[in-house]
Computed example of a mutant assay.
Amino acid sequence: MTETAARLLSNWIVAQVPQHANWLRQSLEGLAQGAPDRDLYIFLGLAPRKLGKADLVLNAADLANANAARAGWSPSGWSVDGAARVLALLTATSNRPFAERFKDLRRTSDVAEMIALYRGLPLYPEPEALDFEVGEGLRSNIRAVFEAIAHHNPFPQDHFDDHRWNHMILKALFVGSELSPILGLRERANPELARILVDYAEERWAAGRAVTEELWIPVRPFADDPAIRDKLADAIGKGHLTEEGLL
């Protein structure tokens, strides 16, 4: 899968900035042959200057190929330099575990680099070894970094336990992030999350604040749960919620 994803990324980048194809190829060849970490850091720093920061131009066939390479992977919205940074991580070889290199990169990266690092999560080897670093990204106060993990990324759906999943959904609400771009929002619904979201809605209503309709997506499968049913009925009775809103 990783080789296919790397090949796709390389083809897309070269198609968009063919004038820099030689630089990209030579740089990646060095990284693939075990160049020191310093060379990887230099590449990551040069990528936006060499390749630009334009959006990666992809058509429907490109997106279908991405999904075939890794189910759920959608590089729509990626930038050219961001794609190159992920490609470099997939290409570089080292005696050090991947998670150690990722940790060092995260600690020294700027926001754009961090977004690229986290968008590449579904493509990296040893995903279970990245648990701590993913947690750090979820705790970020920078919404774009949080969304690099939470939005259009199959990694959380595939690797988070219910506790971390529920925390991510709740934080998305707290930071004003949309829920619908979260892959698995329906499939990963669970009773504990449904109860948490109903309590969150009650707090919002008590403060005179609105609740996004997306919140009910993971609640609906558990609307008949005794711990939830009465609260929903009370909310409908008070005019905070309509029965249609739960459909």
Rank of each mutant, 00 (worst) to 15 (best):
A227H: 12
L138A: 05
L241H: 03
W205P: 00
I169F: 02
K50H: 09
S27L: 02
R101V: 15
G239Y: 02
L44G: 01
A148S: 08
L51R: 00
L241D: 00
E213T: 10
G72C: 09
L121K: 01
Q157I: 04
V86M: 04
A84D: 12
A35I: 08
Y41C: 12
L183V: 07
H163C: 06
W165E: 00
V134I: 14
F102L: 04
P221A: 05
R49T: 12
R164A: 06
S109R: 03
E187R: 14
R7Q: 15
S79H: 06
F102V: 09
I236Q: 12
R38V: 15
L121F: 01
R38D: 15
I182Y: 09
L28Y: 10
I169H: 01
G176K: 07
A60H: 10
Y118N: 03
I217C: 06
A99E: 15
F174E: 10
P221S: 07
Q33E: 15
L232C: 08
A21T: 10
E178Q: 10
V175E: 07
H20D: 13
A84G: 11
L179I: 12
H151K: 03
D62C: 10
E213W: 09
I42Y: 11
W23R: 03
P154H: 04
A172T: 10
D81S: 01
L105Y: 03
E126I: 04
L58G: 00
G77R: 06
V134P: 03
R204L: 10
Y200Q: 05
A207T: 02
I149P: 01
N190M: 07
